[in-house]
Write a protein that binds this DNA or RNA. Structure first.
Length: 819
RNA sequence: GGGCGUAUAGCUCAGUGGUAGAGCGCUACCUUGACAUGGUAGAAGUCCGUAGUUCGAUCCUACGUACGCCCA
């Protein structure tokens, strides 16, 4: 069924973006997932579904939808995937071959992804698809660089940069993660000029040969007498100055701090402020440099051990103890980062914290509390954004250097995209620097350089020929919370610098789908739990094959926006149950619609039975609830309200009550039958529309079956969102409360007395006294409702108490129809 | 150490300043002319703890505890 509906949508072009429709535009900046579809799990299906509920809602509320899909194909994850899959690394393979392999895996991944999203029923216009490595994105990305260069916001500098020794590349602050671990803290003695101990505490004794200064707090009386003096570095025997800094905590250890180039961001700061010496003792490869003397060539761990041993033997170690430490590691390599000094391109962000915070405040956050994550990230920024990566697969910098002069040559915008390692510089530059050596920049840009302009890519800011673009800024950004500091932050930076605006009006932040243990679903889960038939409960393809995309989507709608949701296969089964139930409800209605004339005038509301008015009243309220939910970017509210209405109000009660009316016009009258039919037709139509964003397949199927021909509408998903019809009816609600109490009492007794469903009641007497006396009028005035609901021939109301007592204080007595 | 979030039935989660909710699971019954991938009924909770505000707190406030995430 889903396959057929999917083909139908595609044949009809239901989700195609039409720039000329004249409708208000709703554009979505969706997260580009990266390569290798092998890691795809139901958590991904969840977050993409959640965004898509909104898209479908917006489409039905009359918006022209711009819903693209991107693929994040450049960057370290892709490279690493290729390195692992093909057992190569960038040192053993040529740049061109490596890029070719990346492109190949990228293409494979994209096919798998696209198939996945189509299966899931995402209403994407696939013509708007982009890949972050394609020509349009390279052009946009390079244009972004050139624009920022011209504005003076991107600069080349050889400041210390965060360095990943495993992947041999620079990193940005956002590429770091914190790893908590146990470390060894050593108290190590330096010597003042008089030969007295000056003890510092460090977890990194291997950096001692890189020590360039000792620091203490300016008010620390212990060290004031030593001001301006120097200290001697143990084993390495050279002198470093003694300096002061407000940042030193006098309470920590001895109040003396060693500053090396470079142990951490603090060292970098002091190095810059106090113009300290530079002694890089750890190389880009993670090995000790010549400055480390006899330790040269050792890896960090080995050098630490050797240096500690030598310090100990020479009597410089005063104490050592285990401590908890937080180490910055590369997000991809998981290894502690070091520092290196290599000329890199930086985007200046540190001087703009205030203006980014202002942008954060301008953005509409859903849920609201996600804003603080961005604010805190901005406040904690320590480095400008290094956008250079010493990798192969990425967007090249549109830049050449003149060796003789050091001049920077920028590509002409008309030539973009360029690859300076292959393409010649612009003609004017060749003429100007004739006879000199011009070298293309070999580094590639940080992958976020491209991802951060996804809004501009979608809006076709670069003006690529033949590409459709939406308005800028876009309406909505959708993403998970863990990339607020990267994707969201960098996007805000880019739009602020390029256009002095936000990239979108709203940001909707989703949570994660977790496994049963509440942990992130891992690749291991995907491998470990695959059975002999290839079925895996975490694999979206498996789940969709087994239960259908609607069922999986239904599960995804169970999490409040922004919260994580544990995945249990049984919850998908509940979704499957709903789909089947809808199918059966439709079948039932179809059955009772035999001979129904859709064009005939509807029975006026006032002439319909109380249950008709009640179910329509509930429908109006439901429309309000679901709509309110979506307006607040919360789909979970709507699903819950729909569930309740559909199962409880419609299936359990209304349908059960009206069956007899529909079946026996000779008893209840033809108007009564027609009224029930009118009501059912409308209720089903509205319920289908309200459920459409969540379970698009089954709702479309039923719409096509029952309504499409009549309405001349192509697709339910292009039809309009239901609006309240002013049918809310408190009186009917009150009356139905009484009637339902009788019905429930009867169900209770029927179960207790083991009366088969098929057995009708001859006479049912409701005994009313005390608190329930007020029900008399409701019951007498709506006897037909009860007759139909209970299959009773007659209903009587009596005072006193019957013999049969229900817990609600309502008492019934009855005689059954003898067969 | 700082911040954010979460804590409600066996499980996954809604919710409300006034008697506590759903689905799943469990128990019993029912093969009824939509549905056994079903239906009906039932059992099941110290709403994390303590103190405060209030006529009344699961909800508001403060403090604490546990867990998750982010940042040092």
């Amino acid at each position: 069924m889903e396959r057929r509906i999917r083909d139908f949508w595609e044949a009809e072009g239901v989700y195609k973006y039409d720039p000329d429709s004249g409708k208000p535009q709703f554009s979505v900046d969706t997260p580009p997932p990266y390569v290798s579809a092998a890691h795809l799990h139901v958590g991904h299906a969840m977050s993409y579904s959640q965004a898509e509920f909104l898209v479908r809602y917006k489409r039905m509320t009359g918006h022209e939808i711009f819903y693209p899909m991107g693929f994040d194909d450049n960057g370290l994850p892709t490279e690493r995937f290729v390195e692992q899959t093909h057992k190569v690394n960038k040192k053993t393979i040529s740049r061109a071959d490596f890029r070719a392999l990346c492109m190949e895996e990228t293409a494979k991944g994209a096919v798998a992804y696209e198939e996945m999203w189509r299966d899931l029923g995402l209403s994407i216009d696939w013509r708007l698809r982009y890949s972050t490595i394609d020509e349009h994105c390279r052009r946009t990305s390079q244009l972004s660089f050139i624009d920022l260069y011209k504005k003076g916001e991107v600069v080349r500098s050889d400041d210390p940069v965060l360095w990943d020794t495993v992947y041999d590349t620079a990193l940005a602050q956002a590429d770091l993660e914190v790893m908590d671990r146990k470390g060894q803290l050593f108290d190590i003695a330096f010597r003042d000029p008089d030969g007295n101990d000056m003890v510092i505490s460090t977890t990194r004794p291997e950096l001692i040969p890189g020590c360039v200064a000792l620091y203490h707090h300016p008010d620390d009386e212990r060290y004031k007498p030593l001001a301006g003096k120097s200290a001697s570095v143990p084993i390495f025997d050279y002198d470093v100055p003694l300096k002061t800094s407000e940042d030193v905590d006098p309470e920590f250890g001895t109040g003396l701090m060693m500053c090396c180039t470079f142990g951490d961001g603090e060292d970098v700061k002091k190095w810059r402020i106090d113009k300290l010496d530079t002694r890089l003792v750890i190389g880009r490869d993670g090995k000790m440099t010549a400055l480390a003397g006899k330790y040269e060539g050792m890896d960090i761990g080995g050098a630490r051990k050797a240096i500690v041993q030598d310090l100990d033997e020479a009597g410089f170690i005063r104490d050592q103890r285990r401590v908890d430490q937080a180490v910055s590691v590369g997000e991809r390599s998981g290894q502690p980062v070091e520092f290196a000094m290599v000329p890199q391109w930086f985007i200046k962000v540190l001087d703009k914290k205030e203006q980014f915070l202002k942008r954060s405040a301008e953005l509409n956050w859903f849920p609201e509390h996600m804003k603080i994550r961005l604010d805190q990230w901005i406040e904690g920024l320590k480095y400008d954004w290094n956008i250079s990566r010493q990798r192969f697969y990425g967007v090249p910098f549109p830049v050449w250097y003149v060796q003789e002069t050091g001049d920077v040559i920028l590509a002409d915008e008309a030539d973009l995209p360029v690859d300076p390692t292959e393409d010649a510089p612009p003609q004017w530059a060749q003429e100007k620097y004739a006879g000199m050596t011009i070298v293309g920049e070999p580094d590639v840009m940080d992958t976020w350089m491209t991802s951060s302009v996804s809004a501009q890519i979608n809006a076709n800011w670069a003006g690529t020929q033949g590409r459709m673009g939406c308005d800028f800024p876009l309406s909505l950004r959708v993403q998970a919370f863990e990339i607020i500091r990267t994707w969201l932050f960098y996007s805000v930076v880019k739009s602020d610098l390029h256009a002095a605006t936000l990239p979108w009006q709203q940001a909707m932040i989703s949570g994660w789908g977790l496994n049963e243990q509440g942990k992130k679903i891992s690749k291991r889960d995907l491998e470990k739990f695959t059975d002999e038939n290839g079925y895996n409960r975490y694999d979206p393809h498996s789940v969709i094959r087994e239960y259908g995309a609607d069922a999986l989507r239904y599960w995804a709608a169970g999490a409040r926006l922004g919260s994580d949701l544990r995945y249990h296969e049984k919850d998908v089964k509940v979704g499957r149950k709903l789909v089947i139930k809808m199918w059966n409800v439709a079948r039932l209605i179809e059955m009772y619609l035999e001979g129904y004339d859709r064009d005939a005038a509807k029975v006026p509301l006032a002439d319909r039975a109380v249950e008709d008015r009640w179910v329509l009243s509930g429908l109006d309220k439901l429309i309000g609830d679901v709509t309110r939910g979506f307006e607040g970017y919360d789909y979970a509210i709507g699903r819950e309200a729909l569930d309740k209405y559909f199962w409880n109000t419609l299936c359990d009660n209304y349908l059960e009550i009206v069956k007899e009316r529909l079946r026996k016009p000779e008893v209840f009258g033809e108007t009564s039958q027609k009224a029930a039919q009118d009501t059912l037709v409308e209720v089903l139509r509205t319920v289908l529309a309200l459920f459409a964003p969540y379970v698009p397949f089954i709702t479309e199927e039923l719409y096509q079956k029952f309504y499409a021909a009549d309405e001349g509408g192509a697709s339910l998903h292009k039809s309009s969102w239901p609006e309240k019809q002013g049918r809310e009816d408190a009186v009917a609600g009150e009356t139905m409360k009484s009637l339902l109490a009788v019905i429930e009492a009867w169900r209770f007794m029927r179960t207790r007395d083991k009366i088969p469903f098929s057995t009708g009641i001859d006479v049912l007497t409701v005994h009313l006294e005390g608190e329930v006396a007020h029900m008399k009028e409701a019951i007498e005035a709506n006897a037909d409702t009860l007759k139909s609901a209970l299959r009773a021939r007659s209903i009587k109301v009596d005072g006193g108490t019957g013999t049969e007592t229900n817990r609600d204080g309502l008492t019934l007595s009855y005689t059954v129809v003898e067969e």
